[in-house]
């Protein structure tokens, strides 16, 4: 656990140090500690780009990983995760509705509205993701088998994308551009005051998931055993699903859809700690998610790529093999 914590610090510092423009280490520490720095451009890069980006990656990674863990427990499905089950698509759909339609119906581009626009985007992402989450929860009760649920999630994702495609057709060009950029997924899109709003929101939400530890552990045994142990199943499911949905929604609203991170991290943590106990896996996923997000962000920004590599390509490269590994391991039993 402490190694995970340490890795966050190391990756965080590396995120500050490395980038397409090289800034001497001493100057970076100087800027961070508030000392005077002659180079105004360096100052801006560090304070307005690298620091917010690193902080965003940290909490976003933690949020996605925790959300993935909650989904895997509540659906009792090792392949559950924000992007795989189409929850991110739901959030995208919500965002697409307001971003793309605000221009043609509301008469003004939301991308120019500032704070109000940001709040609207967040709320629509939450609405979209909870809608899909409710749908998946409904489907999960009807169908047995992990692969079926997985395919349903992928199909829901296609449908959401199809609707987004139709919406794009009716939208103003600048709205489409704003949406496409959002859809690429990035920890750097959040800037200035929005970063602090995002981080404060997440710092409030992430610790609340600790209240769910006992509930999550009981849910591991399956609905019938959980009920027999005195758990109010409907309430517990609702709580866990909404917590998970809101986390994904907020991260997606601010960073765009980030794939595979939420699915992969809980598996890596269970693998490292050989435990399913949430008093271990929950904090471990939080730390692991933050660490992996920082690492992916670092790779995406490696000198040479010049920031051209989307963070999603990196997370997919890390996450997709984990999905394959899970499928290989589970093929004998339930998948």
């Amino acid at each position: 656990m402490s190694i995970l914590g340490l890795s966050i610090i190391v990756f965080f510092i590396l995120n500050l140090l490395l980038g397409s423009i090289s800034i001497p280490m001493m100057d970076i520490f100087g800027i961070l500690t508030g000392q005077h720095c002659d180079n105004e451009i360096w100052r801006n890069i560090v304070l307005k780009s690298r620091v917010p980006q690193s902080l965003t990656a940290t909490v976003a990674g933690a949020g996605l990983a925790v959300s993935g863990l909650l989904m895997q427990t509540v659906f009792r499905n090792p392949l559950a995760g924000p992007s795989v089950l189409g929850i991110s698509s739901g959030a995208s759909l919500g965002v697409a509705f307001v971003v793309l339609l605000s221009g043609s119906i509301g008469g003004m581009a939301l991308s120019k509205l500032g704070v109000i626009g940001e709040v609207t985007i967040t709320l629509s992402a939450i609405a979209g993701s909870l809608l899909i989450m409710a749908l998946i929860a409904f489907v999960a009760r009807k169908v047995r088998g992990n692969v079926t649920l997985l395919i349903m999630g992928v199909m829901i994702g296609y449908i959401a994308n199809a609707i987004i495609g139709v919406l794009k057709f009716f939208s103003a060009e600048e709205d489409i551009r704003a949406y496409v950029i959002w859809g690429l997924g990035s920890f750097s899109r959040v800037s200035g005051g929005q970063t602090s709003v995002f981080i404060i929101l997440m710092l409030f939400l992430l610790p609340t998931t600790f209240f769910l530890i006992k509930t999550l552990n009981i849910l591991l045994l399956g609905d019938s055993y959980a009920r027999n142990l005195g758990l109010d199943i409907k309430r517990a499911r609702l709580l866990v699903i909404s917590c998970s949905g809101i986390l994904v929604a907020i991260v997606t609203a601010y960073c765009g859809p980030i794939v595979f991170l939420g699915l992969a991290v809980p598996h890596i943590c269970r693998g490292i700690f050989h435990s399913s106990n949430h008093s271990i896996t929950l904090p471990a996923s939080m730390l692991g998610g933050a660490s992996l997000a920082l690492l992916c962000n670092l790779i995406a920004r490696m000198p040479g790529f010049e920031g051209a590599l989307p963070v999603n390509s990196v997370t997919a490269l890390v996450g997709a093999p984990v999905v394959m590994w899970v499928l290989f391991n589970k093929r004998k039993s339930e998948v």
Binding site: R76, K214, N217, I218, L220, L221, G222, S224, Y225, L229, G230, L231, R270, H274, S275, S276, N277, E334
Partner: peptide, 20 residues
């Protein structure tokens, strides 16, 4: 019901009986 739990020790599983 098939138990889907993995990575839980016998000790922990029996301990779940204490959750009420």
């Amino acid at each position: 019901d098939k138990l889907m739990v993995t990575n839980m020790t016998v000790d922990e599983l029996v301990g779940m009986g204490r959750s009420p």
